[in-house]
């Protein structure tokens, strides 16, 4: 019995070891799908928060996914936090040298003014794990209150750029499945309403165009009748004058 159980343990252990091919910590798919489909600020914000969390987990577990820093950086840049975004993109270039040219192009597009900041690049990429932790903390701080980022180097004023308050934080971050479903249903209903409103406005515009055309036709008809009437009157007047002249003669 003991031997059988040992054999089974070996079998299971071997199978488990062979199955451990090491998958990476994934990107936040649900939030990404939400942003990709609806593209609202709220969905972008919740995507950025989820990315910060997964980035932090990946850094802690040493399972960095290629493009994680870049994704988070682009999300931050789209939200307007360009300084932090620049730091994240520099971190991506440092962690994955294959993506350096791509990161350069993205920076060129999103933040051309921060492209040639070599000193900041060197400083940002000095300690990647600290950077990710800082990003996570900063976004955690962003949730309930206006944005307050921890100052890492007090002599460096560029870090203070992140301390500008953010007023437009809309959605809660930790959502239950029911809340998510509710939000999505609301979003779907909103989309449908918007679509309906768009259709209504198109129909109204079409109707207005038809009405205007009818009105223009009626006006033209009226003008033509008035002109005909005036022409007839003028003709009558001329005839009358001609007859009077003939009588005089």
């Amino acid at each position: 019995m003991t031997n059988v159980s040992k054999g089974t343990i070996i079998l299971l252990a071997t199978l488990l070891l062979s199955a451990c091919s090491g998958s990476y910590v994934g990107l936040p798919r649900a939030e990404m799908l939400g942003y990709q489909t609806y593209g609202t600020y709220g969905s972008l914000y919740s995507l950025a928060c989820a990315q910060a969390e997964s980035l932090n987990a990946a850094v802690k577990a040493d399972t960095l996914h290629p493009g994680m820093y870049a994704e988070y950086g682009v999300a931050l840049a789209l939200m307007g936090h360009k300084s932090a975004a620049c730091r994240m993109l520099n971190a991506e270039a440092k962690a994955f040298p294959e993506g350096r040219s791509m990161v350069y192009r993205i920076k060129q597009r999103l933040m051309p003014d921060m492209l040639l900041d070599e000193a900041a690049t060197a400083r940002d990429t000095a300690n990647l794990s600290q950077l990710a932790g800082w990003a996570y903390d900063s976004l955690t701080a962003l949730r309930p209150l206006p944005f307050v980022a921890p100052v890492i180097d007090s002599t460096d004023t560029t870090w203070l750029q992140m301390q500008t308050p953010v007023d437009s934080v809309e959605t809660p971050i930790r959502l239950t499945a029911t809340q998510k479903r509710q939000l999505l249903e609301e979003e779907q209903a909103r989309q449908i309403m918007l679509q309906q409103a768009r259709l209504d406005s198109i129909a109204a515009a079409r109707q207005a165009k038809v009405d205007a055309r009818k009105q223009a036709k009626a006006d033209r008809e009226k003008d033509r009748k008035e002109k005909d009437k005036a022409r007839k009157q003028a003709k009558k007047e001329k005839d009358r004058q001609r007859k009077e002249k003939q009588k005089k003669k």
């Binding site: 990404m32 799908l33 996914h65 493009g67 870049a70 682009v74 789209l78 597009r109």
Partner: peptide
């Protein structure tokens, strides 16, 4: 969105959807 997952797990460098959009 899910097209990049198997590629990343196979060891390729694949930029994410936001970076790809840029």
């Amino acid at each position: 969105l899910t097209a990049s997952d198997p590629l990343v797990n196979n060891g390729y460098y694949v930029p994410g959807p936001l970076a790809s959009a840029q």
